[in-house]
Design a protein around this nucleic acid. Structure first.
Lengths: 130, 130
DNA sequence: TCTTTAGTTCATAAGTTACGAACTATTGAA
DNA sequence: TTCAATAGTTCGTAACTTATGAACTAAAGA
């Protein structure tokens, strides 16, 4: 009972801007997507439990991948016991040119800024501490 | 009782990519924002009840404007009895170059496509009908 | 067949959103 | 001044969404 239903991948013309923005408006999902699409759209993520930090429960991670998949952002294929997820950014670039790269670029700027802020804070704490 | 609290506008460095994407992942809000930011970021929307179609209740519209404002996308100022909303796209362009224009462009592509599909459907219905 | 690995589904608790009713704040007229 | 009109805000609540533990499935290997 409770069979595993087939994975749903919208066809390219059914992908919506709202759907993409909603999927990427979650910090965990945008980080996953950035990692997947990062290196020229050629990454595959096997073993998603290894992705991101270990603090996120696997059922939650599974839902996040489902959200990315059903928004049309990734294609998931089962390979044995693992899932291979690949970004659909080439297709999406055709339909909405520049959209994903602009989002990934903005995400990169923000991550860099946060890393810098975190380092500054650490340095201050060290100085205060002793 | 239930005083009207001051309008909240995040400073530019507190604006997040996730916040922007979430705010624009709603079809009503992205349409409002496109109208506001459309003509080179210089539009003002007085009398928001006149915006979009009349089908959206004003309390809902008020919440949508709040969401845009608190995500940092618009600046709202009371002028007499009306609200003036202006896009903050110049500031945001500095912080996240290309992000908003890519989203607005994608939204434009999608709207045009939908309008074309609607016309096609109407034409078919006319042919079927008589 | 049994076990392990990698993930999915389900139930539900927690959080978010939409909208009508009641309110506030400003303007303009009497 | 008071009163009415206009333009929006706030609040309560019902409807929807999301996160997560527990129980499950599906493939691979011993």
């Amino acid at each position: 009972m409770a069979a595993m239903r087939p994975l749903i991948h919208p066809s390219i013309e059914d992908i919506t801007v709202e759907g993409i923005l909603h999927a990427l408006s979650d910090p965990v999902r945008v980080a996953i997507y950035a990692e997947l699409a990062g290196s020229n759209c050629t990454n595959i993520c096997s073993n998603f439990l290894q992705m991101s930090d270990r603090s996120i429960p696997k059922s939650t991670l599974s839902q996040h991948f489902r959200a990315l998949r059903e928004a049309g952002l990734v294609r998931s294929e089962r390979h044995g016991v693992e899932m291979h997820n690949t970004s659909r950014c080439v297709e999406i670039e055709q339909r909405f040119p520049g959209l994903l790269s602009a989002i990934l670029k903005a995400h990169g700027i923000q991550s860099a800024e946060r890393a810098r802020a975190a380092r500054r804070k650490q340095a201050t704490a060290r100085k205060q501490g002793g």
